[in-house]
């Protein structure tokens, strides 16, 4: 058995003239939680749907649990759990009925009641899915994704529509699955979620992977340097420094009193990510400008 649950090499996808993926490569190790981050339309969902076997690729190599998703088998699908972006199904079954049915489709499924409890659906167990709120339906999606006891779990924006408490519950569920050895591929808009859950992350933009690494390594070293921000006569000032305490002390001495609106900011994953995507966009427009000049 390979150490990699997922291997992607130079993955490309074109829709007619539109290039959706332009040479993406990464691996996901067994047992790892990997987050795929990026703005809307960057290619996250295209990537995840190619790995799930829903889309064909234009070129490149893909291996998911030892199988090429382009030639999937039922035995291979039995090892996957897929939580798609939200769907609009009729929902005529109750939560329990739906889970029981799907449990029956998998060879070594989890206990239905356990999954209902783990996803916080106990009170809604006997309610038809069509009668649930958006967030509750999303819990059902997650429950259906894990009912088959997957080796590899795909979560495409799983917590959309969750209230903060539901997201915390979901996080602890994911940690539990991870502790059981499940490999997880997560896409999310919530960077705090990626920071909470994932071991590593890849940032995708305009169909290219612009960064990949451990969550505490994403972005350049500079991007992690703390920022000290304060107000003086000219307005808001900020400075990056590896010694924020020294700078604050100096500022206090300079002002002779509390510096107004003083903040020390340790860049969050979100800040780093936004910098990354903005830099990439700047680089992109710089390239297209030079091209225009040449033309």
């Amino acid at each position: 058995m390979s150490d990699e649950a997922v291997t992607v090499r130079d993955l490309r996808k074109r829709y007619g003239q539109m290039v959706a993926l332009d040479g993406v490569s990464f691996e996901i190790h067994r047992g790892e939680t990997f987050a795929l981050l990026g703005p809307n339309g960057a290619g996250k969902s295209t990537t995840i749907e190619i790995l799930e076997g829903y889309r064909d690729r234009s070129s490149g190599e893909v291996d998911v649990l030892g199988t090429d998703p382009g030639h999937s088998t039922l035995a291979w699908k039995a090892k996957l759990g897929i939580v798609l972006q939200s769907t609009a199904e009729a929902g005529t079954m109750t939560v329990t009925e739906q889970l029981r049915h799907f449990a029956g489709l998998f060879p070594r499924s989890r206990d239905v009641d356990e999954v209902i409890d783990a996803t916080g659906l106990r009170e809604k167990a006997k309610v038809r899915i069509s009668k649930l709120s958006g967030g509750q339906r999303r819990r059902v999606d997650v429950a259906l994704g894990i009912i088959g006891r997957p080796e590899l779990l795909f979560l495409d924006e799983p917590t959309t529509g969750f209230d903060p408490e539901a997201r915390r519950d979901f996080w602890s569920l994911i940690r539990q699955l991870k502790a059981e050895g499940t490999t997880i591929l997560l896409t999310t808009h919530y960077l705090d979620e990626a920071a909470q859950l994932s071991d590593r992350a890849g940032v995708i933009n305009h169909g290219r992977l612009i960064d990949i690494g451990r969550i505490d390594e994403i972005g350049e070293a500079d991007a992690r340097v703390p920022i000290v921000r304060w107000r003086d006569r000219d307005g808001i000032r900020q400075r990056r420094t590896t010694e924020p305490a020294a700078l604050v002390t100096a500022l206090a001495a300079e002002f002779g009193h509390e510096p107004p609106e003083l903040e020390v900011i340790r860049p969050s994953l979100e800040d780093i990510y936004l910098d990354l995507v903005a830099d990439d966009a700047a680089a992109e427009s710089a390239v297209s400008e030079t091209e225009e000049v040449v033309a």
Partner: peptide, 14 residues
């Protein structure tokens, strides 16, 4: 069109 088949297609249902 409502995603039912997509969901089923992701399970080991023949």
């Amino acid at each position: 069109s409502n995603g039912t088949l997509k969901r089923l297609g992701g399970t080991p249902l023949s």
